[in-house]
Simulated assay, not measured.
Amino acid sequence: MSGKLDLGPMFAAAGVEGWLHATDLESGREVGHRPDSALPIASIFKLPLLVELSRQADAGGLDLTERITVGPRQRAFGPTGLSVMLDEVTISLRDLAYLMIAVSDNTAADVLSARVGLEAVNAMLRSFGLTRTQVVMNTTSLYASMAEDTGHDWPYQEPEDLARMRVLDPARANSSTPREMTRLLGLIWTDCAASPELCAWMRGLLGLQVWPHRLASGFPYDDVEVSGKTGSLPTIRNEVGVVEYPDGGRYAVAVFTRAFSPAANLPRADAVIGTTAHLAVDHLRAGRA
């Protein structure tokens, strides 16, 4: 069973265009607002990268306790984690994965993508039938492409800058649909994306994400758990995750937005992700009786 929500006015009032898909992981009921549109996913590409890392560990192709030394020359642009550290760091693959998910560390993601291979990530996605999801850039190439496309470094706030950026074109960027992202989350939460042990590990990492201002803002309750991965680019604010209630209800939600303004600080654009996700989950929970 599926349903539609008319969320257009709510998104517009927050200064964004929006897309959403939510599904009840127990019953399969779903609801959406333009859920099959292909869109740039920004740092949400780190979620399929995490899945492929886990699958390669299951297959014996790598050891998550393997330690890698990351030096200053390997730093990717970014405001968190290894990306802002100055000294050489030796760290395990699994701790790199923690940094990649919990604080969206770009350097950690690039080290792992080099170890795993983006071709393997895309092959995994195709094997699950996620044919509209692609990962074609690591974070270093992503930021390099923005400088190449605009002819200058950050900030990118002019309309002509945005029009030139391939990272905002889903045909040329890391991209997916809201529906395919909730399907991938469902595979993790039902132990189908990898072994039960590593699916549990992935769920644990997603539960450690530190950002509370998007999806989690719609569920400010001590007994409701929100696990997720956020993603941002100029005008793009996205988050995908799973909301778990004390009665056993589990709901995968993906909300993608594109702001009308290029401003970096748009609190309403962040908050509408949580607000619309809550409406979608409430709609699904109303059908549980």
Rank of each mutant, 00 (worst) to 15 (best):
G204I: 04
L215V: 09
Q209E: 14
T190G: 04
T235Y: 03
D153Q: 12
M181K: 03
P155E: 08
E225W: 02
A173F: 06
T190M: 00
R214C: 10
L162R: 08
Q157L: 11
Y221R: 15
E180F: 07
R203M: 07
C199R: 04
G207D: 03
P196K: 01
W154T: 01
T150N: 02
T235D: 01
S232V: 06
R172T: 13
L233A: 07
P178K: 11
R203E: 02
L184Y: 05
Q209M: 13
D169R: 04
M202A: 11
D149F: 12
R179D: 13
I236F: 01
D153W: 14
E180G: 04
P220H: 12
T190W: 00
A216W: 01
P234D: 13
R214I: 08
L168Q: 05
P220D: 10
P196R: 02
I236L: 10
H213S: 14
S227T: 02
N238T: 09
A216R: 15
R203A: 10
D222H: 11
E160W: 14
L205M: 07
G151M: 08
M202H: 06
A173M: 05
W201G: 02
G186N: 07
P178F: 03
P170A: 00
L185T: 05
D223F: 08
E158G: 00
P159W: 10
A200W: 02
V167N: 06
A163T: 14
T177S: 09
E148K: 12
A216I: 00
H152W: 01
P170W: 09
D169K: 01
L187N: 05
T150S: 13
S176R: 04
A163Y: 06
P212Q: 13
H152Q: 09
R237M: 11
